[in-house]
């Protein structure tokens, strides 16, 4: 296959993948924006405290694994040490978020749970911002689809530039568009980074 034909084909395939992703992103985005059209179930908050059965003597990642297995939690995990020196572990799953706080003395585990009934709106809303691979095969598949789409966007951009470069004499202003597309967002990023 000729080089130019191959690049065109890759460009088209990657655009099809982006199309599939964008369709979902737009659909969930429209649902998110028009949230007033949907009945949003209330969030039920419950809190309880349990004594510590196992101290955190390793890394916080290891302790998160222990909590996940011990209490059968699921979802995306993150952890941090807050300003009061507590270790805070979060398990985020659509419709079910749990925050566990381990005190500096490691004597109590405080559980705070937010539960929301799974409706079409809550699922679409949360899948729009879903991150990570945890939560079961369906979530992993969603995350893989997400990654493939992002990869396709890079391929689409690169092949687009390659196609333009071969025909640049016919599209003389391409350099300006390319430079503007790269330099303006980079400039804004740098302003945020270095602004006093």
């Amino acid at each position: 296959m000729k080089y130019s034909k191959l690049v065109r084909k890759i460009h088209l395939i990657s655009s099809m993948i982006i199309f599939s992703f964008l369709l979902m992103y737009l659909l969930t985005g429209i649902i998110k924006i028009n949230h007033n059209l949907f009945e949003i179930p209330p969030v039920e908050v419950s809190q309880y405290t349990l004594p510590v059965e196992k101290m955190m003597d390793g890394t916080p990642r290891e302790y998160t694994k222990y909590l996940e297995e011990k209490y059968n939690f699921r979802g995306r995990i993150n952890f941090k040490k807050d300003q009061k020196e507590n270790w805070v572990f979060n398990f985020n799953f659509p419709g079910d978020n749990i925050q566990i706080t381990l005190t500096p003395a490691q004597d109590t585990l405080h559980f705070k749970q937010w539960k929301q009934k799974m409706t079409f709106f809550t699922v679409a809303n949360r899948m729009h911002v879903q991150r990570g691979f945890k939560g079961g095969w369906a979530y992993t598949a969603w995350a893989v689809m997400y990654d493939i789409s992002c990869f396709a966007m890079i391929i689409f951009a690169v092949t687009g530039v390659l196609m333009w470069f071969r025909a640049r004499k016919r599209f003389r202003y391409g350099w300006w568009y390319l430079a503007a597309g790269i330099l303006i967002p980079m400039g804004i990023l740098c302003l945020y980074v270095f602004w006093k």
Binding site: S20, F21, V123, M127, A138
Partner: peptide, 13 residues
């Protein structure tokens, strides 16, 4: 390509 994410979303729902 179009149905896969829709089915996935419906399944999760």
């Amino acid at each position: 390509m179009v149905l896969f994410p829709l089915i996935l979303l419906t399944f999760i729902w």
